Simulated assay, not measured.
Amino acid sequence: MSAAVKYTLGRIGLFTVVLLALWPVELNIFIKLMVALAFSAALSFFLLRGWRDEMAEEMAVAAERRQSEKERLRSALAGDDQTDSTSGPDAPPADRPRR
């Protein structure tokens, strides 16, 4: 399971727990929801730190991978990268001349 899914489920779980703890309190439902949202956000800052850091690391790796792929494609489109255009699946075999 990805770190983003774990962190999101953790946030939803904390919100649900806090809301259920506030359920017997005599307050307007909107006040209960707002208090549950605020307390669950504060709790998640401390309790879900590991999952949040793991998610941030996964996002940084994905962003770096996208950036390097973008640079590779730009250089290929500009004609700077000759190896990609001659080694693809549609390229003719190296031992036969082109017609």
Results as ranks from 00 to 15, higher is better:
Met1Val: 12
Ser2Lys: 09
Ala3Met: 07
Ala4Arg: 15
Tyr7Thr: 03
Tyr7Lys: 09
Thr8Gly: 03
Thr8Met: 04
Thr8Leu: 11
Gly10Asn: 08
Gly10Cys: 00
Arg11Cys: 12
Gly13Tyr: 03
Leu14Arg: 07
Leu14Phe: 08
Leu14Gly: 04
Phe15Pro: 01
Thr16Lys: 14
Val17Arg: 13
Val17Thr: 07
Val18Ser: 06
Leu22Trp: 15
Leu22His: 10
Trp23Gly: 00
Trp23Asn: 04
Val25Ser: 07
Glu26Met: 15
Glu26Cys: 04
Asn28Lys: 15
Asn28Pro: 10
Ile29His: 05
Ile29Phe: 10
Phe30Lys: 03
Ile31Ala: 12
Lys32Arg: 14
Lys32Gly: 05
Lys32Glu: 00
Lys32Gln: 09
Leu33Tyr: 14
Leu33Lys: 11
Leu33Gly: 15
Met34Thr: 15
Met34Ala: 14
Met34Gln: 01
Val35Met: 11
Val35Ser: 02
Ala36Met: 09
Leu37Thr: 11
Ala38Thr: 07
Ala38Pro: 09
Phe39Asn: 04
Ser40Ile: 05
Ala41Gly: 09
Ala41Met: 12
Ala41Lys: 11
Ala42Asn: 12
Ala42Glu: 00
Ala42Trp: 06
Leu43Glu: 04
Ser44Ile: 05
Phe45Leu: 13
Phe45Cys: 08
Phe45His: 09
Phe45Thr: 05
Phe46Cys: 08
Leu47Thr: 00
Leu48Val: 08
Arg49Asp: 00
Arg49Asn: 03
Gly50Leu: 13
Trp51Asp: 11
Trp51Thr: 12
Arg52Gln: 12
Glu54Arg: 06
Glu54Met: 01
Met55Ser: 06
Met55Ala: 12
Ala56Trp: 05
Ala56Val: 03
Glu57Arg: 02
Glu58Met: 02
Glu58Cys: 10
Glu58Asp: 10
Ala60Lys: 03
Val61Pro: 00
Ala62Asp: 00
Ala63Arg: 10
Glu64Met: 04
Glu64Tyr: 07
Glu64Leu: 02
Arg65Glu: 14
Arg66His: 10
Arg66Val: 02
Ser68Cys: 03
Glu69Tyr: 00
Glu69Asn: 01
Glu69Gly: 02
Lys70Asn: 14
Glu71Lys: 02
Arg72Met: 15
Arg72Lys: 14
Arg72Thr: 15
Arg72Trp: 11
Leu73Tyr: 06
Arg74Tyr: 06
Arg74Cys: 08
Arg74Trp: 06
Arg74Phe: 04
Arg74Asp: 13
Ala76Leu: 11
Ala76Gly: 01
Leu77Met: 13
Leu77Thr: 09
Leu77Asn: 12
Ala78Ile: 06
Gly79Trp: 06
Gly79Phe: 06
Gly79Arg: 13
Asp80Val: 02
Asp81Asn: 15
Asp81Lys: 10
Gln82Arg: 15
Gln82Ala: 15
Thr83Gly: 00
Thr83Pro: 00
Asp84Lys: 10
Asp84Gln: 11
Asp84His: 10
Ser85Gly: 00
Thr86Glu: 12
Thr86Phe: 07
Ser87Trp: 02
Gly88Ser: 14
Gly88Ala: 11
Gly88Lys: 05
Pro89Tyr: 13
Pro89Ile: 14
Asp90Gly: 06
Asp90His: 12
Asp90Pro: 01
Ala91Leu: 05
Pro92Gln: 08
Pro92His: 09
Pro93Arg: 13
Pro93Ser: 14
Pro93Met: 11
Pro93Tyr: 10
Asp95Ser: 07
Asp95Trp: 12
Arg98Asp: 09
Arg98Leu: 13
Arg99Asn: 14
